[in-house]
Nucleic acid binder design. Structure first.
Lengths: 136, 136
DNA sequence: AGCGCTTTGGTACTTTAGTATGAGTACTTT
DNA sequence: AAAGTACTCATACTAAAGTACCAAAGCGCT
């Protein structure tokens, strides 16, 4: 929000500077009106591109970044999150166990707890929910 | 590519029109230079935003867009793809069957064929592969 | 009409997944 | 020291998922 105000302030400043510049240029007749218009066009075109790129990047980043706050909020433990990542890699409980050096039983416990915490019926459902919440 | 040329053509046209307009406006003195500059600034700012949005959308869409060619390449049938979408929604075979108005047996057949075609061991694995190939 | 393909569905079976319950260890907080 | 929490693991069970095989209906193509 503060950034937005700053950017708009700079924009208005740029606009005023261009007004002054164009007046001076016309009076002194060193530059033709075409060039002034071209300069203004290029400047504002660039500003438009720049601003849009920033805002769009924020949006795309938001949909890709992992929401660690949400993970805490759901009380998902570290180990449970490891298991969730294993599931998202398409591994079986046994394979996840081998990867984390624990038994399949342990993974089953973690998965069960995960399903409760994510309010999911199946591991695939959990995956869908987790993606929706931006936690994987 | 053709679109790009078209857009640039229109841009140049707009620029020329603005030149003529500004000249006429100055001669007839109906408008001040400030207003002309403001109009030009707004117009080109908008053009910048618009063009950038288009190009960025193409980029983001590319990493999200579904690769239908790949689906054909893998010889995944329409129905199998429906089932794949059901899996990605976290549904059980039974639920997918209800959604598509067919029996669970049918879904099992489709899933089995899908796993072979995607070279996956499990439905979660199929999901991971499908995401990797940009087909879901 | 016959061929190939998709879609559908079934049976029988094996393998994973998931639930319920109990229990031990370790580490932190009160 | 006691309570709480996270992690571990096991048993016993039920429920899904997945495999293998077979079979029939429907559609487009030649």
């Amino acid at each position: 929000m503060k950034k937005t105000i700053l950017v708009f302030g700079l924009l208005i400043l740029a606009l005023l500077l261009l007004f002054q510049f164009s007046k001076y240029a016309l009076i002194s007749s060193h530059l033709t009106i075409e060039i002034i218009i071209a300069v203004i066009a290029i400047v504002f075109f660039s500003i438009g591109v720049f601003l849009n790129k920033k805002s769009l990047h924020q949006k795309t980043n938001n949909s890709e970044a992992i929401d660690y706050e949400k993970i805490k909020e759901l009380e998902i433990s570290d180990r449970e999150y490891d298991v969730l990542l294993g599931i998202s890699e398409g591994l079986s409980n046994k394979e996840i166990g081998e990867k984390l050096f624990v038994s399949e039983s342990t993974i089953k416990t973690h998965v069960s707890n995960l399903l409760v915490k994510l309010n999911a019926k199946r591991r695939t459902h959990a995956l869908q929910i987790a993606k929706d919440l931006n936690i994987i």
